[in-house]
Simulated scan of single mutants.
Amino acid sequence: MDTGIIMRTMRTLGRAALGLVVATLIPVAPVGAVDTVTIGTVGSPSANLWPVFIGLDKGFFAAENVKPDLIYVPASAAVIQQLAAGSLDVTMSTGLVDPIRAVDQGAALALARFEVQAPPYAMTAKPNIKSLKDLKGKVISVGGAKDITRTYAERMLAPHGLKPGDYDFVYAGATTARAQALLGGAVDAALLLPPSNFQVQAAGYNDLGLTVEYAPELPFSGTAVNKAWAGRNQDVLRRVLAAQAKSIEYFYDDHNRADVVRILVAVSGQKAEDVEKSYDFFRKNNFFDRTGKISRARMNALLDALVGLGDLPARGNIERFLLPGVAQLSD
């Protein structure tokens, strides 16, 4: 073989070997590393969490290099306690009153966006109870003594001549637990979320009314964050919110109805017909906020309600509850 060819070949092999050694010695950052985000929520799978389940099923979180670690906690107040302690990074489908109370008391939490912009509960009662006024002297299951569901129930009962003391409350944080208490005869009525309300109604129980008819101006749930975590992971949070937004848009596309129903049936174990009713209920009432923002008017209405309950001393500046640089106010 020609000596020049041999020398060129040796030089080429030498450079390749050197490149291999250098590549071995220099650490290479992983491409598209996946960020795990611990997300807390209340109870068990329900229609409120539809966007999370859609995002997981359709790969919207994966496309943003995010892996949600979904943690179910029995009650809303307990979820917020864990968020404040740093055990959770984010909470979703969490009643807004608990993070608001926590922030007012000095917790380093903040709201990133609204999720369900009006309360989607139904007051469901035993077969012999036909109307809200028939709940006088009865036992009603709501989420907690300071839970927003108690406010909803009182809002529903007041126009029918019932005031606190005319009925008794018992508490269960998860809607599935309240449904079981009603079906088991432990309570006379309960505030239930879809699809549990449709399941109970199919068993012969009565729908006495919807919370959205009595408190349409009060937002229900939102995404809250631990501020320390959000400060370290603002890009991750933006990707979480982006996946959430894609999921909500997927929900609202009527062509996806069957697929959206399939997703919730798979995670909740509920009957398809009950989940179909849930989809139509949420879709008709536009419960999921599509803007990704926080309505100033709705936020003020909720703060005023909490002031009226004595939970807040005054409305004050609502921006103290929002995550700077992420949460956006709308008029």
Rank of each mutant, 00 (worst) to 15 (best):
D2K: 10
R8V: 14
R11W: 09
A16G: 14
A23C: 13
I26H: 10
A33I: 04
G40H: 02
G40F: 08
V42L: 11
V42A: 04
G43R: 07
S46C: 05
W50V: 14
F53M: 10
L56R: 08
V66A: 07
P74V: 02
A77P: 03
A78C: 06
A85L: 07
D89L: 06
L96H: 13
A102W: 08
L111S: 01
R113M: 10
E115N: 05
V116M: 01
P119M: 15
T124P: 04
P127S: 11
N128K: 09
G137A: 08
K138D: 09
S141H: 13
G143Y: 05
G143P: 00
G144F: 05
T151V: 14
L157E: 00
L157N: 08
Y167I: 11
V170R: 07
A172V: 12
G173A: 06
A186E: 13
V187Y: 08
A190S: 10
L191P: 06
L193D: 15
Q199C: 09
P216I: 02
P219G: 06
F220L: 13
F220V: 10
G222M: 05
G222T: 09
N226L: 00
R232I: 09
L237S: 11
S247A: 13
I248C: 01
E249Y: 11
F251N: 04
D254A: 15
D259K: 01
V260W: 00
V261E: 00
R262M: 01
A266D: 14
V275W: 00
Y279K: 05
K284T: 07
D289W: 07
I294K: 03
A297L: 08
A301R: 10
A305S: 15
A305M: 15
L312M: 04
A314G: 08
N317K: 14
I318K: 06
F321G: 02
F321T: 05
F321K: 09
G325D: 00
A327D: 06
